[in-house]
Design a protein around this nucleic acid. Structure first.
Lengths: 282, 282
DNA sequence: AGTCGTTGTATCTATATTGATGCAACGACG
DNA sequence: CGTCGTTGCATCAATATAGATACAACGACT
């Protein structure tokens, strides 16, 4: 108990109207029980609310239910193909998210030395990393919150934290590692396997790449066996630039002047104690 | 206008308490303006609310602010290292999410023929895919919503939709494609480049893998050039099993008995019209 | 023509969240 | 020792969201 969990509430938005988990639950209820009325009953929610909500959603997402009022059994409602499509999207989105929560990330801190559109080159203690760097650069994205005043047209030399999801890290045997000219993988690190733990057919491998925090990779147990990955083995870890995300480290406006860690790794979904982060001392 | 956007509201949770974008905004305000009071003022929010909220969060996340009451200037508050760590996590999470929204996914529908813990083998028209399949299988995860009654201990032969994010797809030249014994990449498809569009240093490539909907890949423009990817070229597209997510397709309880698409590709973040999905006709 | 279980509204209430306001306590500083 | 702009806390009001209830309209079926 008490574990810190980065997560996300999935939703599908159009024109400022959001379809969230609750809406999906309702629609699925209608599909299952044949009418909004019964769905409301079974789900323990008010019919009025569901009815209003569906109508509201239909204004922006198009027809979701085919209603029939009267008739045998009094009528009922069935989902349109449109609605099914929406449900499918939501399910996949949710799967993506739950996976994201389960996936650890490795983060490297470095300085942005070059930028071309969304693509940035970050110099880190572990080597050069190419990543998609959000912010200032080009497009105005939905990330922009209130109070952001980083408007620097050129953000090179800024401190950037690059994070890579462990499920995006590919491990290869050193001998057979393909040259960059042959794949679309731009980031490569040589290292040695530090630890391996397996569970449910999935193996978590940490790779020492020369800096204090390891690079984490998520593999199938099958792959781990095939590659004969054991602690001490040498491997090449690589990941695509488009799978790595860089975040401009916001400089603290006010008081403390230090921080700016070199490298640190943050576990997602497994960590439990945040307090003792040896990052910024006094 | 009117584009459908799958998204997610990031948050960090512990013990049922969530730190959301609003909280982060407030904390960042304190960092910037030096006190909760001024932060509230500048952000146009009530001081009382922020004060209560911070105290509330501190109960589960540990000390976030170092308060000083009285003293020169009346006092003020500064962030603890703990709080900075939290902000950092949130930023990276948000970056992950905004990236997710921008990333297209390719989805293949098939039947689950085998399962080992989280890992499933799915037979699709395009070939066999190994993916992490959520649900029923093993662990009770946070995804479970009300009304889920898929309790089948064995869900083989169920219909599954496998989705792969385009930033997880690696493209290689056919000659040099590494054998599966040498990498941790389990899913490979041979195909031909269908279309290429480039923007901001990032290229979106669609690969025809023999089924009607293409596999999408996101590359750096540099990679695209290096691999000389142009429409018509043959390539090998591969992705890790741990980067592919499978979702059990919920069978519609009630009425329509068809649907169950073979393969369809859903664009994330760029699509604008949902209605005309040529998946299930009439 | 009556029955039945819906849909479609409208109105009222309950609850949760947030803002607004007031006020005592604080403590370095002049 | 008073000033000042905070923190800490309590209380009330405003707002948003969801449930509760009521009732007319509907239309295939008996």
């Amino acid at each position: 108990m008490g574990s810190i969990q980065p997560q996300g509430e999935p939703f599908i938005e159009a024109d400022g109207v959001r379809v969230d988990a609750r809406d999906v639950e309702a629609l699925r209820g209608v599909d299952e029980y044949g009418s909004m009325y019964r769905a409301a009953e079974e789900l323990g929610r008010s019919y009025a609310r569901i009815q209003r909500r569906v109508s509201e959603l239909e204004e922006t997402f198009g027809p979701l239910l085919t209603r029939q009022r009267g008739g045998t059994g009094g009528g009922g409602s069935t989902l349109t193909a449109n609605a099914r499509d929406l449900l499918g999207r939501f399910d996949r989105l949710r799967a993506e998210f739950s996976g994201l929560a389960r996936t650890e990330e490795s983060v490297f801190s470095g300085t942005l030395v070059d930028r071309d559109g969304l693509l940035g080159t970050v110099e880190t203690p572990a080597g050069t990393i190419r990543a998609i760097v959000a912010g200032a650069g080009s497009e105005g994205d939905a990330t922009a919150e209130a109070g952001d005043d980083t408007e620097s047209p050129d953000d090179t030399n800024e401190i950037v934290q690059v994070s890579v999801r462990s499920d995006a890290v590919v491990l290869t045997t050193p001998e057979e590692a393909p040259k960059p000219s042959e794949t679309s993988v731009r980031n490569r690190f040589a290292g040695t396997v530090e630890s391996v733990e397996s569970e449910g057919g999935i193996a978590r491998v940490t790779v020492d790449v020369g800096v204090d925090a390891p690079l984490r990779a998520l593999l199938t147990e099958t792959s781990r066996e095939t590659l004969a990955l054991e602690p001490g083995e040498t491997v090449v870890a690589s990941f695509k630039a488009t799978a790595a995300r860089g975040v401009l480290a916001p400089e603290h406006g006010g008081s403390v002047g230090s921080e700016s860690a070199e490298v640190d790794t943050t576990e997602k979904g497994t960590s439990e104690d945040t307090t003792g982060n040896d990052t910024s001392e006094e």
